[in-house]
Design a protein around this nucleic acid. Structure first.
Length: 765
DNA sequence: ATAGGGTTAG
């Protein structure tokens, strides 16, 4: 053999070997379906063998990477692919869609289209699914159009993905249309559509689709029934949910834990414990005692029906305690005013290492906020973050009322910043709570800013803003916002009118208030409730139209409650009307014998009229009611007498006696922590108070009250006014004084009444 | 190469 020939042979052999290696590699690649490291090895091998740009190899590698969600690597291969084909795109698009990487799915679709490749039946469903995942209705709609133009829309996979996409985008009409045109409609699409309507609260369409399924030859299955029950429950159609459950039962269809937990939630909201007990028994018969969802809804249902003991029993019977059930228990206890038990439960399971979630923390915070344990609520919020549980958009409005009642502006601001950071400020509940917090802390401008920045508003937001202006007695702004509300086509409700009437009453706008009161039922079909009558009585009463106020009370369709009588009594005190004052006071003594404020008001009227013996009688009544121990009350009572003496005959024989009594009381008050003033020259504190509020002189206001006394009731009033002046620092000082003492529940209620705009029975001390 | 149903917090 010549040398030349030799070299040729070697070359041929080399080529042959190389070819063999490639063949070996390709077969190896084809069998490589396993791990990610295998995929990487295959990729490395392809690079080494110079095969990575071979269409076949690239496509295979791409699929390997995609199956491991390694989209960056897959992308590199796609971009360096010599001729990216439909198959490469299909594998990548479907993988992205499968792993819910919807943005990538749609980016790939666009890239594919720009390469003049068009989706087929393999790609269309997964791209439509991506639109569903991103709620991209427009694009989904376009893909639908493409499907119609190309005839792909009649593919059954495309059809069902369209139905689901339209449901997810809450375009139920479109979904319904596609469903109606399906060649072979299936249970899955039918149930999804029916429950979609149910979730949206469209009872008639939900029922129609559900019933039509039978006509189309599709038998509704358990999931279809459950979807209806759950949907009705979620949209607040509780009765429909229960009826559906009953229909299911009478149709002889056996339900499961899903049906039971959904129907129980609805029963709870109907507060129908009789049905609740029946379903409970049914659940036990079906052996659902250990279903955590069933137990949670049972606990919640009994709680909503006011059966706290049953709630506890059901929870105790649970073998392995579940967080959800524990959360339901906490909220049930809270609902039934068992705040300490709720806290105990929370601490107990936290201590036992139960993994508490956002709902657990939020329920506990809401519970404390709602029951006046404001510092605890704030502390829990801090603890929650230390525990690494992220607050969500429900946590914020649960916490904010605590900041508001506490005038804890710094905490409220922090919560606001937190919401901004986390993007919660588009949430109507968050914003409404912020508005309320800022108004309560005296920052009405900040409240308005929150209001103006809202992308969408509902009734709650409008009421929060209106309430804020009412709280500050800003009549112009309140009327303004009410008009804005009407031009925005937002119908007002009971709460809106409470604020409006309250602010009119505060500002003495009798006619305006009366016209609002009349238009309530005339223009909006809203029947006036107790709080509206309280406002009206206060409105008329403050203006001195006491007889009119009294006759309005007689015309009321129901018996006036303590609030309404209190409004009348307060007005009687302002105008020194003894006759009506006595009527009101006597009713109040019967309605709330333990409320010292009523006695004081009457005593004040007597004092103004110089009725010495009547004052004695009131004092005796207080004693009999067991209220004589309150030095603050006695103090005011005695002070009134001194005023009388000073105003009248200074050489009154009882002067020395009274002064002695006053001194004794002063000592007593000092001992029990009150700060009495011995300087009763401050005759008309109320006048000063009004002036300072109007001028925003919070320090002076604080001084006036600081000198007078600091009984809990006073401190509350001061705090309220300080907040209106925007001086939260001083307000907080007052709060700490209140918290060191026990406040009568009634006092707190009055305070909240004020806050909500019914200030008619304020002016306690 | 997949699709429909559950409780509890404002």
């Amino acid at each position: 053999m010549s040398n030349k020939l030799m070299t040729r042979n070697v070359q041929a052999l080399h080529l042959f070997n190389n070819f063999n290696r490639k063949i070996a590699y390709l077969s190896c690649l084809n069998s490589a379906t396993g791990t990610l490291s295998e995929a990487k090895q295959a990729h490395a091998g392809a690079l080494k063998a110079g095969l990575s740009t071979q269409p076949h190899v690239a496509t295979k590698l791409l699929a390997l990477y995609a199956s491991h969600q390694c989209f960056t690597e897959a992308d590199i291969l796609l971009y360096s692919h010599p001729q990216p084909d439909l198959f490469s795109f299909t594998t990548l698009i479907n993988a992205s869609s499968k792993f819910k990487n919807f943005h990538r799915t749609l980016t790939l679709l666009v890239k594919m289209l720009s390469g003049r490749l068009f989706p087929d039946t393999h790609i269309l469903p997964s791209t439509i699914k991506a639109c569903a995942g991103l709620s991209a209705l427009k694009l989904g709609h376009q893909l639908h159009g493409f499907g119609l133009a190309t005839g792909l829309a009649s593919d059954s996979l495309v059809e069902s993905s369209l139905v689901h996409m339209y449901i997810k985008c809450s375009a139920l009409k479109y979904a319904h249309n596609v469903f109606n045109r399906m060649a072979e409609p299936d249970v899955i699409c039918g149930s999804a559509l029916a429950s979609g309507y149910a979730k949206k609260g469209d009872v008639s369409n939900a029922t129609m689709v559900f019933d039509e399924m039978g006509k189309l030859g599709i038998e509704p299955n358990l999931v279809s029934w459950n979807g209806m029950i759950a949907g009705f429950n979620q949209s607040g159609h509780f009765l429909e949910a229960v009826l559906m459950f009953q229909r299911m039962h009478s149709d002889g269809i056996e339900c499961d834990g899903v049906s039971v937990s959904s129907v129980l939630a609805a029963v709870g909201d109907l507060e129908d414990v009789i049905i609740g007990v029946q379903v409970h028994g049914y659940a036990i018969r079906l052996g659902l005692r250990s279903d955590k969802y069933v137990v949670s809804s049972l606990v919640d249902m009994y709680g909503k029906c006011g059966c706290a003991l049953e709630t506890l029993r059901v929870f105790e019977e649970m073998e392995k305690k579940d967080v959800g059930a524990c959360n339901a228990l906490i909220s049930s206890l809270s609902r039934n005013n068992m705040v300490d038990d709720a806290l105990k439960t929370f601490r107990k399971y936290k201590g036992q290492g139960m993994e508490l979630n956002v709902v657990s923390w939020t329920s506990m915070i809401a519970c404390c906020s709602q029951h006046g344990k404001h510092p605890v609520a704030l502390e829990l919020f801090r603890e929650m973050q230390i525990a690494g549980v992220k607050p969500n958009s429900v946590t914020i409005p649960s916490l904010l009322p605590a900041c508001a009642s506490f005038a804890a502006l710094a905490h409220g601001k922090a919560a606001h910043c937190f919401s901004l950071k986390r993007g919660f400020t588009d949430d109507v509940y968050v914003c409404s709570a912020l508005i309320d917090m800022y108004s309560s802390c005296g920052r009405i401008k900040a409240a308005r800013q929150c209001f103006d920045r809202m992308p969408r508003r509902n009734l709650v937001c409008w009421n929060a803003m209106l309430g804020g202006y009412a709280m500050h007695g800003m009549i112009k702004e309140a009327i303004n916002i009410f008009q804005l509300m009407q031009s925005s086509r937002q119908l007002p409700d009971l709460v809106s009118f409470t604020s409006l009437l309250s602010v009119c009453s505060q500002c003495g706008l009798v006619e305006v208030g009366q016209s609002y009161f009349n238009s309530m039922s005339k223009d909006y079909g809203i029947e006036a409730r107790m709080e509206h009558y309280a406002c009206m009585v206060s409105l008329l009463g403050r203006a001195g139209k006491l007889e009119e106020a009294y006759s309005l009370m007689n015309e009321m369709p129901f018996e006036p409650d303590a609030c309404v009588w209190g409004a009348l009594l307060s007005s009687c005190r302002v105008h020194h009307n003894m006759q009506l004052g006595e009527v009101a006071a006597n009713r109040l003594f019967a309605l709330e014998p333990k409320n010292p404020g009523n006695y004081i008001l009457l005593s004040n009227i007597y004092a103004a009229r110089g009725k010495w013996t009547e004052m004695d009688k009131v004092r005796d009544m207080m004693k009999r009611a067991g209220l004589k121990k309150n030095p603050g009350c006695s103090w005011i009572e005695v002070k009134n007498r001194v005023h009388m003496l000073l105003a009248g005959d200074k050489s009154h024989p009882q002067m020395a006696q009274i002064l002695e009594k006053l001194n004794k009381l002063s000592m007593e008050m000092k001992k029990s922590g009150y700060l009495p003033d011995t300087d009763f020259v401050l005759q008309d504190v109320e006048e000063q108070e009004k002036e300072h509020i109007l001028c925003g002189h919070s320090e002076k206001l604080a001084v006036v009250f600081g000198i007078l006394n600091t009984s809990p009731g006073t401190a509350l009033t001061v705090m309220k006014n300080l907040r209106i002046c925007g001086d939260c620092h001083t307000a907080i000082k007052f709060i700490s004084r209140i918290e060191r003492r026990e406040i009568l529940v009634r006092d707190t209620n009055r305070f909240h009444h004020f806050k909500d705009g019914v200030c008619s029975c304020g002016d306690l001390w």
